[in-house]
Design a protein around this nucleic acid. Structure first.
Length: 571
RNA sequence: GCGCUCAUAGCUCAGUGGAUAGAGCAAUGGUCUUCGGAACCAUCGGUCGGGGGUUCGAAUCCCUCUGGGCGCACCA
């Protein structure tokens, strides 16, 4: 599949060059040629406005520039008409014969329809979810999960070879607290004298799931762990938690290829190598306070002891960061930098990181670290998604794994459906806050766009069921019989490549969700008017229309797959 | 206080400096159904938070103000 706007941009580029050598246009720096569909259908299928911006550089009227470009333009085979419109737009119209032939092209490509090769031979890695195994996946984390997995699918569609990675830390204080919390639940379940901390103790995980784990543990090991410290409890909790997390994610089609343990960076010595390299570059110093500290801060610090600092301010940071605490223990910054160094060393051309807004500031420090080590920070791309508010009865439901009050991904799926969760969490720009209305999501009504989109696929499937029953086939269909309504849908369908391209380039996976709705919107009116098995439809036309619906169904299947949703034949 | 982010139709939100700012839902009025009505058509609805600026052209870029959210640890 090739991208029509890119091909057109190339044609315009050549037209400008040849107009210049013919003397019809003066010399100027070639601007970026942005070809896109105009808002209004009567303005054609694609348009460029660059002549408007060239007036100053050329000293010519935009209309004259546009005419000069149009006169030297070699029309690609898919364009039927080139039109210059005041004040200087150049509009292109697709060739309808070519457009009808796309029915066959789409069918021929099958489930690879609209697969692009823009990044052939390039490898991308998407790191997402990356929650520590201390509790179930929450609604907030689910958003990052859906965004990350959809981004991975879109990058694949754009031509990247993609790996999905989950980064976790099972050695921190959080996990120790989980271990000791489980031990308390274990002793409690055995009727041993133990005080269960109340919600005021934030080292204790209140979640009910630990009670369940404790009972399962007793069935497995009986009372033999009564005198054990928190370690085996942590290990057991971690294993159970990871099983749960993976299962929850799998329910919405999220599967990671690699689970990367932060602890391995300690075990391999990678973090110390990074520290040495930073030091060799002159980016490290030892002090009780940062170099920029004023006397007040010096006083406050007192006799804290020396920490190891990263001189990130030399790269533009607003303050230096501690890499190793005065206790000798590294902060999270050091392994974070080491992790990204590790990722870059694995040879990826693109690293995408999905982070919640609450972790958003950290990536900059990582970029400074990578930069300090002479590596290319521009390969790292971060998608920061704003918080999710879960609303029930119009009121916010607060979420906290530690307090045991939470809305999990499992809850959402059970109350709605896996497809609804995927769509709802995707159909919003990552930059904006997302209100997940739990009541609305429960409703099985057409307020939910999920049904509308899937229904398009279901309706196609219905046609083929009926066609099979009546012995109608699309073999040897003549697509030249297709009418204006079908062409309208095909125009919309052909935008899919551009949507994939833009979503991959701008790292904006929500685009596919909006496109899907637009595509469904283009489909349903046609379904009503373009009948296949109506008594008044001649057999040859029925055959052509059936062929059209086969292509349409394929496009919906592809779009749903890109969103990680199912494409059912019935619902 | 500083940084990031958001503010667009009654609600939820799209909108890559270009042509008359768009969807979905809600509301109102129609269609009355051969393949699934979870549908279709029409209407209503906007000082793009306020104010400046840049530009031939601004919802979009810059400045500023207002109001939300998230950060700003030798926590992760």
């Amino acid at each position: 599949m090739k991208l029509l706007p890119r091909t057109l941009a190339g044609a315009v580029h050549s037209a400008i060059t040849s107009a210049q050598s013919a003397g019809a246009l003066p010399a100027f720096d070639m601007p970026e040629i942005d070809v896109r569909p105009p808002k209004r259908a009567e303005q054609g299928d694609y348009a460029v406005s660059l002549a408007l911006g060239l007036a100053k550089a050329t000293g010519m009227k935009p209309l004259d520039i546009a005419n000069a470009i149009a006169a030297h333009l070699t029309r690609p085979e898919f364009i039927a008409e080139v039109e210059v419109i005041p004040p200087g737009f150049i509009n292109f119209r697709l060739d309808e014969t070519w457009l009808r032939d796309q029915v066959e092209a789409i069918i021929a490509e099958g489930d690879k329809a609209f697969q692009l090769d823009l990044y052939a031979g390039k490898r991308a890695q998407v790191e997402f979810v990356s929650a520590n195994p201390s509790g179930p996946i929450t609604v907030g984390r689910s958003r990052g999960g859906v965004i990350g997995d959809t981004m991975a699918r879109l990058l694949q569609a754009a031509g990247y070879e993609v790996e999905r990675e989950y980064y976790f830390n099972n050695a921190g204080r959080q996990m120790r607290n989980v271990g000791s919390s489980l031990k308390i639940r274990y002793l409690e379940a055995l009727g041993k004298p133990v005080v269960v901390p109340d919600s005021g103790d934030d080292t204790f995980y209140q979640g009910d799931y630990l009670i369940e784990f404790a009972h399962d543990l007793i069935e497995k090991v009986g009372e033999s762990w009564v005198d054990s410290d928190w370690h085996p409890f942590k290990d057991y909790a971690e294993e159970r938690m990871f099983g749960w997390i993976r299962a929850s994610l799998a329910r919405v089609g999220i599967l990671h290829d690699v689970y990367f343990n932060e602890n391995s960076l300690y075990e391999s010595g990678a973090i110390w190598k990074v520290l040495e390299a930073l030091e060799a570059g002159g980016y490290v110093y030892r002090a009780t306070v940062p170099e920029a500290a004023d006397s007040e801060e010096v006083e406050e610090a007192g006799d804290k002891g020396e920490a190891v600092w990263f001189r990130s301010t030399h790269l533009g940071d607003d303050k230096d960061r501690v890499l190793v605490k005065s206790s000798g223990e590294p902060t999270y910054t050091l392994p974070d930098i080491a992790y990204h160094v590790n990722k870059l060393e694995r040879g990826f051309d693109l690293l995408v990181n999905i982070l919640g807004a609450d972790h958003g500031a950290q990536y900059k420090v990582v970029q400074y670290g990578v930069q300090a080590l002479g590596m290319d920070p521009s390969k790292i791309h971060v998608i920061i998604n704003q918080m999710v508010r879960a609303l029930r009865d119009g009121k916010e439901v607060r979420m906290s794994t530690r307090r045991g009050v939470y809305d999990t991904l499992d809850d959402l799926i059970e109350q709605t459906s896996a497809d609804a969760v995927r769509y709802m969490l995707l159909a919003r720009s990552a930059d904006s806050h997302l209100n997940f209305d739990l009541d609305l999501a429960v409703k099985r009504s057409n307020e939910n766009p999920v049904y509308y989109i899937r229904y398009a696929h279901v309706r196609c499937a219905g046609i083929f069921r009926e066609a099979a029953a009546r012995g109608v086939s699309d073999d040897g269909a003549d697509v030249s019989l297709l009418g204006a309504a079908e062409l309208g849908f095909l125009r919309k369908a052909l935008e899919l490549g551009e949507v994939i391209d833009a979503a991959a380039r701008f790292m904006e996976p929500h685009r596919i969700a909006f496109y899907a709705l637009e595509l469904a919107n283009a489909f349903h009116p046609i379904f009503d008017n373009v009948r296949v098995m109506h008594t008044e439809v001649p057999p040859e036309l029925a055959k052509a229309r059936l062929r059209f619906y086969r292509a349409a169904q394929g496009v919906f299947a592809r779009v749903l797959d890109l969103m990680g949703m199912s494409a059912p034949d019935v619902m």
